[in-house]
Design a protein around this nucleic acid. Structure first.
Lengths: 109, 109
DNA sequence: ATTCGTTATGTTTGATAGGATATAACGCTT
DNA sequence: AAGCGTTATATCCTATCAAACATAACGAAT
């Protein structure tokens, strides 16, 4: 028996960032490529693109810098703002898990 | 922009109780009927029955007392243990929401 | 000019969860 | 004995979401 949680942040009732999207954003930051990130996470390029596009359209600041064509076909960089989203969400998530783990001990199930 | 969360408790990697199941359990307690609860929550009887069945098979103590036939065709009562699951989960959930609401204020998104 | 790997986007196919439907057993009420 | 509304369960159908496939634009390198 263990406790699980998922948290996310919405904007206008639509999901902005959550567990999956941050994981993807992290992988893009690591690989500097949407297609490589998608492959690493075993999701289709299209799905990855859609998720990232959703983030970008809801964000008030640029999250990604994309290049089409050129050396190695192009690539994608995560902006400082995008990186701050990653860090903030991850610490929030960890804090939540710790909180719940502690609360969970008090229960009798 | 607001923060959302979903939490649930697993047993053997399978979902035991969570937001939807507790909501259903509450409605069964209120109506003393699986079919009435399903109708109130606009879900099919089958889905409701399956969810409740999942809870029961994972629980170590009885959660429901069911009667087939008889006055009004039968009905279902939630045991004291079942009620304790409801109360414990709901307070846990509320505590989590409060915690997150507070943490959320600290973020810059 | 051609090739290459990327971003970008539309269309078609497929899987699967849920809804709808059907049927039976049960026991109180009439 | 018949009827009613419940629990219980199997089967079929469908709506939705994701995967798969296809195609184009782009720009550096060769």
């Amino acid at each position: 028996m263990d406790i699980k949680s998922r948290l996310w942040i919405e904007k206008d009732g639509k999901p902005f960032i959550g567990y999956g999207r941050i994981k993807l954003l992290k992988e893009v930051d690591k690989t500097a490529s949407i297609s490589a990130a998608a492959k690493a996470l075993k999701m289709s390029y299209k799905k990855a693109w859609n998720l990232l596009n959703d983030i970008e359209t809801l964000a008030t600041q640029p999250v990604l810098v994309k290049n089409i064509g050129g050396k190695n076909g192009g690539g994608t960089q995560v902006t400082d703002y995008g990186k701050s989203l990653i860090v903030q969400f991850e610490t929030l998530n960890e804090n939540c898990i710790n909180f719940l783990e502690n609360e969970y001990k008090k229960l009798e199930l």
